[in-house]
């Protein structure tokens, strides 16, 4: 429950420009030069910070003559500090998915297929976030895929602005279709976007093994029962691997009390090894 409060507070803080939702105008203050850690469209009327993924793509579009050090450094900083703990605690779109998953309908449990599908997000990262902006000079993920942008920005702005509404075309229809498909999937498949599509999660996953904060396993207590993996709804193979969002569900399931959150004071790293 504490994690839900953290998620909710971060979602509210990221989008606290309430008047934007009323008048359909986006925030133009100086804080928009700072990226929030989670996926949150900067064209959302309430957004007071920049989207790290949108900023990365726009920086790559204009990067013909220089490396986008600021945004790359920002992503590196978020990643090395928190890894995918950001996904578990600080992402509004992750919160939306978890809330929809609470709807009591049959669920698709993780299996070999979902594990394989979890690698699609790395392809999306390479193709839509990196290659398309560099080659086609458009933010590929934002333009063709991002359901968060459609939900948080596209629909509210189009509803509030007649001029924007008059410009709707096939692209808007496509993005609404993508959003609708996601929203239908979220009640039956836990965090489907995070697991299969999110390129920001793909970036942060690279830092999971070395991030300062996250889940740790005390190997001296671990018996290898894998109760942690059984209870985990993400496609993890071990606690704290690249699919782990550090939600802490495994902590409660461990019969030996071997799992905890590590902190800056914790200089030890552990992992479960199959005996």
């Amino acid at each position: 429950m504490k994690r839900k409060y953290t998620q909710l507070i971060s979602a509210v803080l990221y989008n606290c420009h309430i008047t934007g939702f009323v008048n359909g105008k986006i925030y133009k203050g100086g804080s928009k030069g700072i990226c929030v850690p989670g996926l949150n469209c900067y064209s959302c009327p309430g957004a007071v910070g920049a989207c790290p993924l949108g900023s990365l793509q726009s920086s790559l579009i204009g990067s013909a003559y220089r490396i986008p050090l600021y945004i790359l450094g920002t992503l590196l900083l978020f990643g090395i500090l928190f890894g995918r703990l950001i996904c578990g605690f600080l992402c509004p779109f992750g919160l939306i998915q978890e809330l929809l998953y609470m709807i009591p309908v049959p669920k698709i449990r993780k299996n070999g297929v979902t594990k394989a599908l979890s690698y699609i997000k790395y392809v999306i990262l390479i193709v839509f976030v990196i290659a398309i902006p560099l080659v086609r000079l458009v933010p590929g993920f934002c333009k063709y895929i991002c359901p968060a942008g459609t939900l948080e920005a596209g629909i509210p702005l189009v509803l509030a602005d007649e001029h924007l509404k008059s410009q709707i075309g096939w692209l808007f229809s496509w993005k609404v279709f993508v959003l609708a498909a996601c929203l239908l999937l979220f009640p039956v498949c836990y965090r489907a976007f995070c697991r299969f599509l999110c390129p920001l999660g793909a970036i942060y996953s690279l830092f999971n093994p070395v991030s300062f904060f996250g889940i740790a396993v005390d190997r001296s207590r671990c018996t290898g029962c894998n109760a942690c993996i059984a209870v985990c709804k993400m496609d993890t193979r071990r606690v704290g691997d690249h699919e782990c969002i550090h939600c802490g569900e495994c902590i409660r399931s461990c019969p030996e009390g071997a799992i905890r959150y590590r902190s800056l004071k914790d200089t030890t790293y552990f992992k479960i090894t199959k005996e």
């Binding site: 986006i26 050090l69 934002c142 942008g149 920005a153 709707i168 692209l171």
Partner: peptide, 22 residues
Amino acid sequence: DGGARDVLSKAVMICMECIGIG
């Protein structure tokens, strides 16, 4: 190098691609 300024200049404009218009 002006990176933060570039992020700001982009973020204060409506991203037409993000909202499905551009």
